[in-house]
Nucleic acid binder design. Sequence first.
DNA 1: CCACATTGAGAGCAGTGCTCACATTCCGGA
DNA 2: TCCGGAATGTGAGCACTGCTCTCAATGTGG
Lengths: 224, 224
Amino acid sequence: MEQIIELGNAQLVEQGATGLSVRGIARGLGMVSSAIYRYVGSRDELLTLLISDAYADLADTVDAAVATAEAGTGGDPRARFLALGDAMCAWAITHPERWTLLYGTPVRDYSAPADTTNADGTRVMQVVLRIAADAAEQGDDGARVAPGEADLAPEVIALLESHLAEFGVETTPATEFAALTVWSSLVGVISAHVFGQLGADAAAIGERILDAQIRMLAELITRC
Amino acid sequence: MEQIIELGNAQLVEQGATGLSVRGIARGLGMVSSAIYRYVGSRDELLTLLISDAYADLADTVDAAVATAEAGTGGDPRARFLALGDAMCAWAITHPERWTLLYGTPVRDYSAPADTTNADGTRVMQVVLRIAADAAEQGDDGARVAPGEADLAPEVIALLESHLAEFGVETTPATEFAALTVWSSLVGVISAHVFGQLGADAAAIGERILDAQIRMLAELITRC
DNA sequence: CCACATTGAGAGCAGTGCTCACATTCCGGA
DNA sequence: TCCGGAATGTGAGCACTGCTCTCAATGTGG
């Protein structure tokens, strides 16, 4: 079982998600393909396992980086976000296929990262939320760029508040909204690089671009 | 030929990119599969055609929306960006599979959107750039959130300047950098919704969330 | 020691992308 | 008008995929 997801990850980094085949894994294990179905119900289920695995790995990496930054800088929100962004970015560049699996085209019949079976999918978002909450507490209200609570629809506020209760974070819905948007932006910025959407010449210096973009988003999250 | 990409788009909206098969298109055309290969070299080449088609459609839609907003508000950058974001968002929600084709997992052996064969891929980004340039010209320098030119690596500045020359837009590299980041953020925010990364309960009110996020990004782009 | 669950083998089905030799049809120049 | 070549479609076939089913071997607990 562990060998299956291990070999699955290996095939993933070699040929990407489309190249991952249960027959190939069976070959690698010296078995026949039908034997794999004793352990995993379908190819999509195998992909879901790999997704959960990747979510956990990414979240562990980010957690570790943020923890060291927190210890080193005394909990400065900006430094923590920079550590988070850099770690996320480095992980994505190191494991582009796994990043693609998480934030690229979703697998059919794979529900949502917020599912109970794989709560790891929301861990990074929660860290961003806590950073934003601390930043909002410390920061000055001047030069705010996030929308005020009056600009948010009631249903949106209700959903945000339910998330705050679920995650156990005390802050305003407006701050969580800003955190959510910054998180989506961070994913978008990294994906643009991993997916090569900026063109070939930008790919060569992509890490430098990403570095500056993360700093810009850090500037943004301190103004929520 | 036109029937092929027409039927290809139809199959795309029905079953997504993975469900698109040249045999299926052949069946829909009442031909045998090998006949398709007279017109298109491979399945990936067919996908590339559909990508170009989608890029052009998206850019046309956005252009039209921005043009009306420009005429209606006398060229206010914020209004233009809101029109752009709303149009892009509406297009993505109307054509989720085509959006996925553009900004989801890239197709193997599909070069870059900046390719000469499909320059439509950069059109929306260029519109964002022009809006940012106008906003930078009119706006006050106070409360800026974009990084200064001193914070950008020389290679990055060189690349940005070459883009400015290519697109014929006169502004600073720092402003273009901010525009690039806002564009990536916009794509990220929309993708998060289309790909369902925010969970099932968020999907129900996704459009309201997106609306507020676009307004937040509009606020951001007026401070570059 | 035996019943039973676990694990794997092997054949097979339906589907895919793609290639190649072959037939047909169309069309412009002699 | 004819004819040669280009364009277009056919059908068989290869290698591959996910997945199902039956059957045999191999443990393992009562």
